[in-house]
Amino acid sequence: MDDKLIIGGKEFTSRLFVGTGKFSSNKLMHDAIIASGTQMVTLAMKRIDMENPHDDMLSHVSGHGINLLPNTSGVRDAREAVLAAELAREAFGTDFIKLEIHPDPKYLFPDPIETLKATEELARLGFKVLPYIQADPVLCKRLEEAGTAAVMPLAAPIGTNKGLVTRDLIEIIIAESRVPVVVDAGLGAPSHAAEAMEMGADAVLVNTAIAVAGDPVAMARAFAKATEAGREAYLAGLGVQSQSAVASSPLTSFLDL
């Protein structure tokens, strides 16, 4: 079936994006990434020694047809984000940037105002911007107008594994968006990923749930299957949950006259 996701002019057949934090070793991270079948891997610039071409983490995610999605985690405002993105473009040779501006170090909630400002500037500079945001439908429209390549609303506070806490808002974002919607943060189980994909999300991003699982490689495989299953269910059209019979026609009897 020809069901490709296109973001920033690039085609993806896998709709599972994977993060690289919190693994117990770079070797395990590498194996989990391969098992997930992902084609998009995000990594924190702050974790990489960008001047060292043999950086251990970087060497563990390079190759295998994987696109790197450097993220700006650690920056606190739009100005810092733009500087970081320019460094990342230089170092990783990609226009893709996952924009993460969370000034608050506790919950890591994204700052919507700085994120919008940075997106405007980065789009102008030719970046393919994927901003991490609150599940805010109006912000999504503003980002669209600013030239974002996709939107990445959070399902739940990052790292909580709580699943689609923002379900109602993400539903609206999916219905209204003209750019791909990648559900990010908080997906704790494969069933959560499947649920997001069944709703019509274009992709999901998972990190913690894979990295801290008992067996991260097996969990990565499970997420891959769930993401695919959810997508296929969405395309197939979900069945009817319930239907109550109606005996008379009190509302439409005027049409019988």
Partner: peptide, 11 residues
């Protein structure tokens, strides 16, 4: 079946 699905779908 398509009609029922549409009737029961939020969107």
């Amino acid at each position: 079946a398509d009609v029922l699905r549409a009737l029961n779908s939020p969107n």
